Simulated assay, not measured.
Amino acid sequence: MSGTSFTVNYGGKSLSGTINADMTTRATVGGETSTGKAVLSEGGQRLTLTWDDGSPSDVFTRK
């Protein structure tokens, strides 16, 4: 796998980005780009995006 793209819509905003095979992440929201690391846990049911700039992590859970 070379990577995958994603889009998350929330509160009238849209976050789009990529997760590479080495789990590095690059995302853009409101014209601002951030980089970080993606971590899967709970048997692939939980995705945590941790940002290099120290912003709070974003956590997504599959229901």
Results as ranks from 00 to 15, higher is better:
Gly12Met: 15
Val39Asp: 03
Asp58Met: 04
Ala27Lys: 01
Gly31Glu: 04
Ala38Glu: 04
Asn9Trp: 11
Gly11Cys: 14
Lys37Phe: 05
Ser55Thr: 12
Thr50Glu: 04
Thr33Ala: 04
Ser5Leu: 06
Ala27Tyr: 01
Gly44Glu: 12
Val59Arg: 06
Tyr10Ser: 13
Met23Leu: 14
Ser41Asn: 08
Gln45Thr: 12
Gly30Trp: 12
Leu49Gly: 01
Gly3Tyr: 05
Pro56Gly: 04
Asp53Lys: 14
Asp58Pro: 00
Trp51Tyr: 09
Leu40Met: 15
Glu42His: 10
Phe6Tyr: 08
Thr4Cys: 11
Glu32Asp: 08
Ser16Asp: 07
Ala21Cys: 03
Asp52Met: 11
Gly36Glu: 05
Gly54Ala: 12
Asp22Cys: 10
Ile19Gly: 00
Arg46Trp: 06
Thr24Pro: 05
Ala21Tyr: 03
Val59Ser: 07
Ala38Asn: 04
Thr61His: 06
Thr25Leu: 09
Ser2Asn: 14
Asn20Ala: 15
Gly12His: 09
Asp22Thr: 13
Thr28Lys: 00
Leu40Gln: 08
Met23Pro: 06
Thr48Glu: 12
Phe60Val: 05
Val29Gln: 13
Thr18Tyr: 01
Ile19Gln: 01
Ala38Gly: 07
Phe6Asn: 00
Leu47Lys: 05
Ser16Cys: 05
Trp51Met: 01
Lys13Leu: 14
Ser14Val: 15
Val8Asn: 06
Thr25Met: 15
Lys13His: 15
